[in-house]
């Protein structure tokens, strides 16, 4: 799988995501913390709708045999089985999410909105990523990258990621 094509559309997708994060108030920590306290339902309803839409759309792409726009390749994604790193990483991430009321996307979007406190969370975010990569590099079983895919140019590339198409 080559992921370096279609750079302008990737940037545009980022713009759409940033716009969406601001419009949905994901960049407002009070909104997130209120949801985590189970006092606001907006985030959970949005999340459920988003997952349902993504699941339906992705299954449709695969079942209809749609080819990708960039490479005319089969639509596919890796199989990611639950591992210890999912629980350890998920728990650590959950702590940070609840301490600040932001996750990585909103941190970037906050900068665009002129919420300058995001510079602190951004510094922590980059530091944490660098630390995880540094620790992961020294371990026999490496950390995997998002959605189980090896990324171009990072230390995780080529580390036994199951990337064969899991076609129906």
């Amino acid at each position: 799988m080559t992921t370096g094509r279609l750079r302008a559309p990737a940037a545009l997708a980022g713009v759409a995501f940033g716009f969406w994060l601001a419009w949905t108030r994901m960049t407002d920590p009070d909104q997130i913390l209120g949801a985590l306290l189970l006092r606001r339902s907006y985030l959970w309803l949005l999340f459920a709708t988003g997952v349902a839409t993504a699941a339906l759309g992705l299954q449709a792409l695969r079942r209809l045999g749609v080819r990708t726009l960039a490479g005319r390749a089969a639509v596919s994604w890796p199989t990611v089985r639950p591992q210890r790193r999912h629980l350890v990483g998920g728990a650590l991430f959950g702590i940070g999410w609840a301490l600040a009321g932001v996750c990585p996307g909103p941190i970037a979007a906050q900068l665009g909105q002129g919420r300058w406190s995001a510079l602190f969370t951004l510094a922590g975010l980059f530091g944490g990523i660098a630390l995880a990569d540094a620790v992961g590099r020294r371990r026999p079983s490496p950390v995997w990258s998002p959605c189980g895919e090896a990324q171009e140019g990072d230390v995780l590339a080529g580390n036994g990621v199951a990337s064969q198409p899991s076609s129906p």
């Binding site: 728990a91 301490l99 941190i107 995880a132 992961g136 995997w144 990258s145």
Partner: peptide, 13 residues
């Protein structure tokens, strides 16, 4: 908080 977010998310992928 950012450190936890970055380390945890990267670790989990």
């Amino acid at each position: 908080a950012g450190l936890f977010i970055g380390f945890g998310a990267r670790w989990a992928g």
